[in-house]
């Protein structure tokens, strides 16, 4: 077995602001995608709400991450390497999404909505791909990451809509609770799948920190099980308050999960070397067994 010479160490460059970007970007893009899908890419109040909220959240995420960068004024340099870097692609997709959604508000057209939806999907996939290409961080460096981010984003987006619509006094859309319930189930499956992912030793150790009551209760019980129950009530009773509450819990659950992923599971992988010989005297070996 390889010898571990340096234990895993918490990464310190990407902090809460980076985690916020991964959450806000996902939630913003997810909001738009869910709204567009529920609206069949047609004009709707729901989509108008999403066209404001979605890009707003995404931009807020970008502002967060820009604040964390060493040279924020050079932010647009990030667009340069679309051919190779998922971070470039994230910014392009984010920019395209914001542009499409904004244009749709000014000059409504189905094409902008489809483009915005595609850009939003690309944005969340890019965010997942950013992490999955990070070879230095075992917990991120898995192929599941884009799927995880996609599902998380859609669930979050549904949560945003469920919360926002009653607050804005917009009549609820009948399908939202059902769709949201489906996305929450999918989210639970994909997060559980991530935790059960057959990664290497470093991956397993980095993700083991999830298995504490606060995480399990926060992410799975409060972030998935209880929202599902609330959504059941909402569907049954057609009370948007239950959906809104479910939305809050889903968002908190996804936020907690992503914050954990970036800040806690985000460990620089241990440094190992192949086949290192230990040194032990024969007598000691015999005595110690």
């Amino acid at each position: 077995m390889d010898a571990e010479l340096l234990p895993a160490a918490r990464q310190s460059l990407w902090g809460r602001l980076a985690a916020a970007n991964f959450f806000l970007g996902g939630a913003g893009a997810g909001t738009y995608v869910v709204a567009a899908a529920l609206s069949g890419f047609g004009l709707s109040t729901l989509l108008r709400v999403a066209s404001v909220l979605g890009p707003g959240l995404v931009l807020a995420g970008f502002l967060c991450v820009a604040a964390e960068a060493g040279r924020p004024p050079r932010g647009l340099f990030v667009l340069r390497k679309i051919g190779t870097s998922w971070m470039s692609r994230e910014l392009w997709a984010g920019g395209a999404f914001v542009l499409a959604a904004a244009t749709d508000l000014v000059r409504p057209h189905r094409g902008w909505r489809i483009a915005g939806t595609l850009a939003a999907l690309l944005l969340v996939l890019a965010q997942g791909a950013i992490l999955s290409r990070a070879k230095g961080v075992a917990a991120w460096n898995v192929s599941l990451m884009p799927s995880l981010f996609l599902v998380s984003a859609l669930a979050s987006g549904a949560g945003v809509l469920a919360l926002a619509l009653p607050l804005l006094g917009v009549a609820g859309v009948g399908e939202l609770p059902r769709v949201m319930a489906g996305l929450v189930v999918l989210s639970a499956l994909v997060w559980a799948g991530y935790l059960a992912w057959p990664g290497d030793f470093a991956f397993r150790r980095a993700t083991a920190s999830f298995m504490v009551p606060s995480m399990v209760v926060g992410v799975f019980v409060a972030g998935h099980v209880i929202p599902l129950a609330l959504l059941g009530l909402a569907i049954e009773a057609r009370v948007s308050l239950w959906s809104a509450l479910a939305g809050v819990l889903v968002l908190l659950g996804q936020l907690q999960a992503k914050a954990w992923l970036i800040l806690r599971a985000g460990e620089l992988r241990p440094i190992t070397i192949p086949s290192l010989r230990l040194r032990r005297s024969r007598e000691q070996a015999w005595r110690e067994g």
């Binding site: 005297s281 024969r282 007598e283 000691q284 015999w286 005595r287």
Partner: peptide
Amino acid sequence: VPAATVRR
């Protein structure tokens, strides 16, 4: 230190 080690 084990006697065997001393001898060795």
